[in-house]
């Protein structure tokens, strides 16, 4: 478990909460994608998705390292990226629910990556303008990688949506399942307000335009339901995250402080 004093500090510091939210999004999505390693439909695409997972893990590390540095500076208690990733429990994670849902089939996996990657793309684009210092540097670096990710996932959404009867039907099913989890990304919560509050309408509009264009190209009908799930950003998660963390955090929990 994370030290109580660090836990209390995080609960009061919105900047740290915001960094952890960004980091958790990247880490949990990375972990889900890494679960495909060795199971991809063909070798090249297995490699593609594990490459993407590695980029996302790198982005998460940069964000955790920065958060750990700030926590150390502000509290005087030495904190590391590993503690933030491996010693926090479900309720302390701030990722969007979309990131933690099970992978489902390949169609559901690529669609999730497209929906979330497109959001990250426009978000980091905004952070390049609005953030400064290390967070801007992380955005500058990450957006180049995310550009490739979104190109790849958008291609797959079109290929499967506009593919065979079977692939089309599965994409329709995936879209129905995931759609109500997209709204949470676009509604800034309290710790996001400070930095991107006024710009969130741009991110939302740009994301909606991108999604609409790719769905149309993939012969997929844009969903009309607008009731949205939420809670992840505040630590209220689906039952899936606990299982994910149990696997991902096992080593550090069983052998505290173990190094590779």
């Amino acid at each position: 478990m994370l030290q109580q004093s660090i836990k209390s500090f995080i609960q009061q510091d919105q900047q740290i909460q915001y960094l952890l939210h960004l980091a958790d999004n990247a880490l949990i999505l990375s972990h889900r994608n890494s679960q495909w390693c060795g199971h991809g439909p063909i070798l090249e695409q297995d490699i593609a998705l594990t490459n993407i997972a590695l980029d996302q893990l790198g982005q998460a590390r940069n964000l955790y390292q920065y958060a750990a540095l700030l926590i150390t500076e502000k509290t005087g208690i030495s904190t590391t990226e590993d503690q933030l990733a491996y010693l926090r429990d479900v309720g302390e994670f701030k990722n969007c629910l979309l990131a933690e849902l099970p992978n489902g089939d390949w169609g559901q996996t690529v669609l999730r990556n497209f929906l979330m990657g497109s959001y990250q793309f426009f978000l980091y684009q905004e952070l390049q303008q609005l953030a400064s210092g290390q967070l801007k540097a992380i955005a500058d670096k990450s957006i180049k990688e995310i550009t490739y990710h979104v190109r790849w996932s958008a291609d797959w959404v079109v290929r499967l949506g506009d593919g065979t009867t079977e692939s089309h039907a599965r994409m329709v099913q995936a879209l129905e399942l995931l759609w109500s989890y997209t709204g949470e990304m676009l509604e800034p919560c309290d710790y996001e307000q400070g930095l991107i509050g006024t710009q969130s309408s741009y991110i939302k509009a740009a994301w909606e335009a991108k999604i609409a264009a790719v769905l149309a190209e993939g012969n997929l009908v844009h969903p009309t339901n607008d009731w949205m799930q939420s809670g992840g950003k505040k630590g209220l998660h689906t039952e899936h995250l606990g299982y994910l963390l149990a696997e991902m955090q096992f080593l550090q929990r069983a052998y505290p402080g173990l190094e590779w």
Partner: peptide, 13 residues
Amino acid sequence: LVSEFGSTACKAL
């Protein structure tokens, strides 16, 4: 182009 991602992050196949 075979795949946009190759044996390492920096390469395509």
